[in-house]
């Protein structure tokens, strides 16, 4: 028997239909939720501090769906709009704002969050709930850097020529660009001074990175001596293999960012809300902060001892206007590539 062209076309069409059917969402189950978040140490910490205790307390099973980057997930959610079968997404404000604009989110029933009062008021709203705070500073190797770094402007010192790694334009969702703008007298709505300042930094930058593991690898392998902008979590990962490195909260202030959780369109809202309420309570907040080196969002939660040393009480912090950044990030990244990286 032979297969003619018509048979082949029929079979291909059947295959295509099957492939499409495979993309339709599974039916939501009342007693389970799917959470998109990072894997690795994040995933382990989330399972241990949040998911397993939540299942034990509520009987609702939770499944972790891994993401490698927040914007990558946003791209995937956009591509699968109307067919999303996940319930919750741990992300940042910039992707949240963009996802909301695209109609990818369900409103959070804030009134049902019993623990909401323990969080700063601005961290709880119908769009998102803050889950942890991330302080950014400088990581450097005191054995190869000839002076003590204490302030952001030290990064421009000519003795650091070729020793730095800095984020790419889209790295950390543009927070480094925002910081440079602040330091140069601008802000999120006027980044021109920040770009002028960045041009003075380029002789010192050897490599522009786009991901946390890359930054940690470059430092641990000795390819660079200074990470110009790093979340404290990177330092905690790094010091296991390279204890000589130091983390500093430079003067005059450190950018403080946060991650948040959102409910995705078509989610099991009741179970998702119960999960959010659980993870913002004191104990899960303390546990995840301890495991990941983040600052808890719950104001009643204790700060982990290790973090008290790295981010001493009284450190001046400043929150980027991430809503303003969200609309401009693509333009900033293009400009950064053109004027700074190239």
């Amino acid at each position: 028997m032979t297969i003619n062209r018509r048979d082949l076309i029929k079979a291909a069409a059947a295959g295509t239909t099957l492939g499409w059917l495979g993309q339709t969402p599974a039916l939501a189950q009342d007693k389970s939720i799917k959470i998109i978040s990072w894997g690795g140490s994040y995933g382990e910490a989330m399972r241990s501090a949040w998911m397993d205790p939540f299942t034990a307390a509520s009987g609702i099973r939770s499944e972790l769906r891994l993401q490698s980057g927040m914007m990558e997930t946003l791209a995937s959610l956009r591509a699968n709009k109307g067919r999303i079968d996940d319930d919750l997404w741990v992300t940042g404000v910039t992707p949240t704002v963009l996802a909301k604009q695209d109609g990818l989110l369900e409103p959070i029933p804030v009134g049902q969050l019993k623990n909401a009062g323990q969080l700063p008021a601005e961290m709880v709203n119908e769009t998102y709930v803050g889950v942890w705070r991330l302080p950014f500073g400088i990581i450097y190797n005191p054995e190869t850097v000839p002076f003590e770094i204490t302030k952001w402007t030290d990064l421009f010192d000519e003795r650091l020529k070729g020793k730095l790694t800095a984020p790419q334009g889209s790295g950390y969702n543009g927070r480094f660009i925002a910081l440079l703008a602040w330091l140069a007298g601008g802000d999120e709505n006027n980044v021109d001074p920040g770009f002028e300042l960045a041009k003075k930094l380029t002789p010192n930058v050897s490599i522009f990175t786009s991901a946390d593991p890359e930054q940690v690898r470059l430092l641990s392998s000795g390819e660079v001596d200074v990470a110009a902008f790093a979340p404290v979590g990177n330092y905690i990962s790094l010091r296991k293999s390279a204890p000589q490195y130091r983390f500093v909260c430079p003067k005059p202030y450190i950018p403080m960012s946060f991650n948040n959780i959102v409910i995705l369109k078509g989610a099991n809202v009741a179970a998702a809300t119960a999960f959010i309420d659980f993870i913002i309570s004191k104990e899960p907040q303390e546990k995840i902060a301890e495991m990941l080196g983040f600052l808890p969002m719950n104001e009643q939660a204790e700060l982990p001892a290790a973090l008290r040393e790295l981010v001493p009480p009284g450190t001046e912090v400043r929150y980027p206007d991430e809503v303003a950044i969200a609309d401009k990030l693509t333009a900033w990244a293009d400009r950064w590539q053109q004027e700074i990286q190239r």
Binding site: G69, M71, A75, R78, S170, L329, Q341, R342
Partner: peptide
């Protein structure tokens, strides 16, 4: 490339993945 070598595939990745501009 250390972020300094502009090849198209990296640009595509950056737009589609890092900036969600599919």
């Amino acid at each position: 490339g250390g972020g300094r070598v502009d090849m198209v595939a990296v640009f595509i990745f950056d737009q589609a993945i890092n900036l969600a501009n599919l």
